[in-house]
Nucleic acid binder design. Structure first.
Lengths: 139, 139
DNA sequence: TATGGCATGTCAGTATCCTGACATAGTATT
DNA sequence: AATACTATGTCAGGATACTGACATGCCATA
């Protein structure tokens, strides 16, 4: 009877390995996984605030603002210095940011494809559904 | 047709939330999740080296040695200063370390039980199997 | 024997992310 | 209108993990 690792451990293992592979693929683009996640969220929701961006990417808003500063310096994102209504500063991708994201997306998709290569299509849907159920149960 | 988040994102979401809940449960024991993982691995493999411990818990051996120093200071683990054969220093749990781990294990098990509460028993096995398949595909 | 390769432990420096705190702007409540 | 509440952005400080480098001890191979 072999040792049966708890699901939490396998979950951690899978996520760590996925992150590592993504990190390796993104090195040539000088992008960390967190930065990629940030650009990805910005494409989905242009003009989102930094705080909302932080929630999307599972970091604090302080960390997000530090990250955004780096991306600003590289010219991948844009942000007004002030806004007439409200406090939130809407952030958007620049043209170059969109280009870098596209290149990153290609590589990330390939990693994900490889990760799922051992699963049938129906299994992939089931995996997604079960993970979502886990998230809901802990929310 | 709703937006379909990639599995990598759901995976990250689940793992982040699980870690957060574990962290919250372990606060009263003054234990981080990494420290819990370390004690857990030590119970499974008494006398394991710090480098092997690091691999088990997905950190570098440098980080593990820092962590072990904290656990040593709290008297939760033991480690000889030298050994006659080889270079690896075998680390073991102290009695108090085993006690703290037991208390932590109870809380962690409860979190995992909650996470899986929405899944049938067969689904839990399937989830574990599919996550392992992902790990294998990326290894 | 001796030489190279590999694993372990450790030191130093850096990067990243976190917690705590505060000011500001909008919203809800009384 | 006045007050409390929430959300956002920002500053400061600290905790944690990482990369790079080096010495030491085992093992395989020439």
């Amino acid at each position: 009877m072999p040792y049966q690792p708890p699901i939490g451990y396998v979950l951690k293992q899978a996520q760590s390995l996925l992150r590592l592979r993504m990190e390796q693929e993104l090195v040539p683009l000088r992008l960390t996984v967190s930065q990629y996640s940030c650009l990805h969220a910005l494409k989905r929701e242009p003009g989102i605030s930094a705080a909302a961006l932080a929630r999307s990417t599972f970091v604090t808003r302080q960390s997000m603002n530090t990250m955004l500063q780096l991306l600003l310096d590289r010219g991948l994102v844009e942000r007004p210095e002030s806004v007439e209504n409200g406090r939130a500063l809407p952030t958007t991708l620049t043209a170059e940011g969109a280009n870098v994201l596209d290149a990153a997306q290609t590589r990330v998709d390939e990693v994900e494809r490889r990760m799922l290569s051992g699963l049938q299509h129906a299994d992939q849907a089931a995996l997604s559904r079960m993970l979502s159920a886990c998230v809901n149960a802990l929310s």
